[in-house]
Design a binder for these strands. Structure first.
Lengths: 160, 160
DNA sequence: CCTTAGTTTCAGGTCACCTGATAACACGTC
DNA sequence: GACGTGTTATCAGGTGACCTGAAACTAAGG
């Protein structure tokens, strides 16, 4: 019903879990992008600042790349832009002539904290109506699926 | 521990649900992309063929776009390429001079069925070790979150 | 010293999206 | 039957997020 063009043939095997994950991600990504945009950031820029903020200690381009599961070249584009925009600063590592660890500037910290607050609000909306048990089961399953696929969460990607 | 560069300061507020969803999606997307690539498709091309296959009846560019939550212009790029590659065919709608409904070609159907099989295998791997109850709770929560964010799943996006 | 591995960075390419603009058609209203 | 409103297909141009390849430098171990 609700589809006047549909005759009868297609039984329509329903879409799998992958599809539901993709759809939810699409909505989450859009929501995060929108909130980050209010502070002049893309979602990727926000998450990169967030990683830096959570880690507490300066991280080099390569380290950030590993934690974000992308190439150093891709990460370079991100932090180059963040540096231009004055959200991070990079100064040479004391006892390593090649590494350029990045730290949040005051402006960068202010922005990332504001974004994180907005995202936390958003998550509350997303999970509205779910019990504490539902939420923890959800998170547990997400983590289990990641683990089953051989992935981590980038807390300590290899060494570093 | 496991991080020699980490002194003491950062308490590291742990990343939220959004982050876990993004990470799982990243792995799922990579896995689907890889499997689709074996048949010469991108993940997006595969899902588009899949929508067409599930629906059973020809869909126009605009209809496909609505079901996939993107603009008609973006979808046009996808189906134009699929048409070039001989995976779909488009012929004018009998009683509408502008619509160009797309159908799967024999080749297209063969490819999408093969991909769907590969993806189903993949999903089994991803959910290994989870009980029937875990899986249905997971899917239920995914759907609830989508609903909380005001999204549907494109089965009947508005009319059509 | 020389090799191997890690790091930063430039150059160039692809894919998945977007907005804007055009042109043709559909259809109800006057 | 002309007219406005909405839908559709499609071209043109642009951005963000990724990639590989290659160059140059540094670190560390034989």
């Amino acid at each position: 019903m609700s589809d006047p063009d549909r005759p009868e043939g297609g039984v329509a095997t329903e879409p799998g879990v992958s599809y539901a994950i993709a759809r939810l991600h699409q909505l989450v990504f859009a929501a995060v992008s929108e909130r980050a945009a209010r502070h002049g950031l893309t979602a990727l820029q926000f998450t990169t600042l967030s990683v830096l903020n959570r880690h507490g200690v300066p991280l080099s381009n390569s380290q950030l790349a590993r934690r974000s599961f992308m190439t150093a070249q891709s990460m370079h584009e991100v932090i180059h832009r963040l540096e231009q925009d004055g959200l991070i600063a990079r100064s040479p590592h004391p006892n390593h002539g090649r590494k350029l660890p990045a730290t949040l500037t005051t402006k960068g910290r202010r922005v990332v904290v504001a974004c994180e607050k907005a995202v936390a609000e958003f998550e509350k909306t997303m999970l509205k109506g779910l019990t504490k048990a539902d939420r923890s089961a959800f998170l547990r399953t997400l983590k289990a699926a990641v683990k089953n696929l051989g992935g981590g969460f980038g807390e300590g990607a290899s060494r570093d």
